[in-house]
Design a protein around this nucleic acid. Structure first.
Length: 576
RNA sequence: GAUUCGUUAGCUCAGCAGGUAGAGCAUCUGCCUUUUAAGCAGAGGGUCCGGAGUUCGAGCCUCCGACGGAUCACCA
């Protein structure tokens, strides 16, 4: 047995071996029939106790309270927890009490998965409990689980370290209540949105993740390489340009829930891969899309929370329609007092200076206005609000505003001070589109490394003619954060991106065998912390002797003390 | 990327002027037949994140590094 295992892990492996010795397979292959769930019992037993005279149920042992010949266990299944009552003579009616005394009391641990049969009763303390009449080991757990205890709503020894929670989400899901709920809700959000679109008859589609030109957004892509074609490919940063090609191809409405990838910073709002829903509908404009988005959001909120008001932090957000609608330039006027309509770049820089907003040379008009809005206005929009009519420089894929060529027909939906959705009346004029791409190229030359590439095939598609179309994109992760009250994106992703875990390569007794170091000393060498053969080589023989003989004494090992000649012969072998 | 805080037992955390490493839970042994963060008695368990330095002596001080949290920047 490796010395690298903790004492508790060793004990569990020992128990595992004893189970095998008793003829019990701790990992049985056959299915275990389950007749009910913990929550079903808790919900239905009070009014219908007759239904639970004979049941079978399976789950993980989360706590044990053993009192001689009787014990209580908390069993957790996918739906919740219930208490089990074990009574030695009921579990083992015959002479042989080993199932209780040995298997249950000695060889099982918190974290093990068992299946039981029994009947439901209520304890003197008033807790609904299963009186167990039969038990089967379904899976032995070899690692101790963090024990989270709770009394009067207060948690003790909670498993809270975010690093461990995200790296070992399975443990997080087991021991922390409410984690599952967040993810169940996430799926509900997606399902209800899909249902909404399908009722309109729009088609769910799939478009490439590996793209030769990463288009549709301004962001740094992940680059990869296709060997057979010997060409670079990029992971998509958006799926907009592909969905619009499908509108050109004649679909009335297409949508996709897509994983997008952006090679940018990571923090509690950003993960390198994230989920976006984009939808494009032919013969519509952004005004229609605003109504549609409003209805869709209201539907999703109602389906997932059963309410129209959601509490987020200190705010109560009301999703009743209609949402407020504010043109961006009005928003800036309201919150800064500056009327930036028609202002040139120099004027805008001056406004930024007066508002103490940091700007740099690479920023054009669009970006400057965006900075002002983001800095001074965005945080004010707690209740769902459509911000509309963005400057043309900010929106290279968006059609110019029907009343003002400096603006575009674009809206963003702000909720809780953050952007949740973004939509356009799509630009379908291929000549204008080409010119806008070229302007982006100009920005790129000024140093904006997020300006868009020119996708010639997309332009070709537009040249064949795209019907007037409105499109909308919505950040699913952020919407889920909003609806689950989470403040970091890592809480709504099962496996958020993390730096790779450092795996310490440890020395094994086998590595030392070849140098004629006896196994019992090899074990002590490992115990004393040497991590490589080289580390031993560099040690002074006298120091090594001291350490090993010290451990021999400490562990009260019955073996002869190590002699210098012996260590020197090891050293000689090591240095061969 | 910057600043800052953190990393000690399986989990949550304490530790000091720099002097043999602690608690609760978990684990093990014993007692206990309806308990409730069960209880009582006892025991074991640590590369104090890694490396270098200062020192008679480092969990603690200095330097370098790893990883994580928070804030900011970047990211429409």
């Amino acid at each position: 047995m490796s010395m690298n295992l903790s004492e508790q892990e060793q004990q569990r492996r020992q128990s595992l071996a004893e189970l095998y010795k008793m003829g019990i397979n701790p990992y049985p292959p056959e299915a275990f029939e389950v007749s009910t769930t913990t929550t079903e019992i808790l919900e239905k037993f009070p009014e219908n106790p007759e239904a639970f005279k004979q049941l079978s149920i399976a789950g993980r042992i989360m706590s044990r309270r053993i009192m001689g010949a009787a014990s209580f266990v908390e069993l957790q299944d996918s739906s919740g927890r219930i208490q089990l009552y074990f009574k030695r003579d009921d579990l083992c009616p015959g002479e042989d009490k080993s199932l209780y005394n040995i298997v249950f009391k000695r060889l099982l641990d918190i974290g093990d998965i068992i299946g039981v049969e029994g009947f439901v009763f209520t304890t003197q303390m008033g807790e609904i409990t299963i009186h167990v009449t039969a038990m089967k080991v379904l899976s032995k757990s070899l690692r101790p689980l963090p024990i989270v205890k709770e009394k009067d709503g207060k948690l003790y020894d909670a498993f809270t370290d975010p690093e461990q929670r995200y790296r070992m989400r399975y443990v997080d899901l087991i021991v922390n209540e409410g984690i599952k709920d967040t993810f169940v809700k996430r799926t509900k959000v997606i399902n209800s949105m899909r249902q909404f679109f399908n009722e309109y008859g729009y088609l769910e589609v799939e478009t490439p993740i590996l793209q030769p030109i990463p288009g549709g957004a301004a962001a740094r892509p992940f680059a990869t390489h296709h060997n057979a074609l010997d060409m670079p490919l990029y992971l998509r940063i958006a799926n907009e340009l592909y969905l619009k090609r499908l509108i050109v191809g004649g679909f009335d409405g297409v949508y996709e829930f897509s994983k997008d990838f952006r090679n940018e910073g990571m923090d509690r709002m950003h993960n390198p891969e994230f989920t976006v829903m984009e939808i494009y509908v032919a013969y519509k404009d952004y005004r229609w899309m605003m109504d549609f988005t409003e209805a869709m959001i209201a539907h999703v909120v109602k389906e997932t929370t059963n309410k129209s008001i959601v509490k987020v932090g200190n705010h109560e957000i009301n999703f009743d329609r209609p949402f407020a609608r504010v043109p961006i330039l009005d928003a800036i006027k309201i919150h800064t007092g500056f009327d930036v309509a028609g202002m040139d770049e120099i004027g805008l820089r001056d406004v930024c200076r007066q508002l103490a907003i940091d700007v740099d040379e690479s920023m054009g008009k669009g970006k400057l206005i965006d900075e002002i809005f983001g800095e001074k206005c965005e945080p004010h929009y707690i209740q769902p609000t459509f911000i509309t009519d963005y400057p043309v420089e900010m929106s290279p894929l968006c059609k110019r505003h029907r009343n003002n060529p400096d603006l575009t027909e674009r809206f963003e939906l702000m909720i809780n001070g953050k952007e949740i959705a973004n939509a356009y009346t799509e630009l379908n004029d291929p000549i204008d589109q080409r010119r806008r791409f070229e302007e982006q190229l100009g920005l790129s030359e000024r140093g904006d490394d997020e300006a868009m590439f020119i996708d010639q095939d997309f332009l070709r598609a537009l040249e064949y003619g795209m019907p007037p179309t409105s499109g909308m994109g919505i950040g699913i992760d952020r919407l889920v954060m909003l609806l689950t009250g989470q403040t970091s994106i890592q809480e709504v992703l099962f496996f958020p991106q993390m730096r790779p875990e450092k795996i310490r390569k440890s020395l094994e007794a086998n590595d030392l065998k070849q140098f004629n170091i006896p196994a019992e000393w090899a074990a002590l060498i490992i115990q004393s912390g040497y991590q490589s053969v080289d580390a031993i080589k560099e040690e002074k023989p006298s120091v090594l002797i001291q350490k090993l003989n010290g451990l021999r004494k400490k562990n009260k090992l019955n073996m002869d003390a190590l002699q210098l000649e012996e260590v020197e012969s090891w050293m000689a072998n090591l240095n061969k």
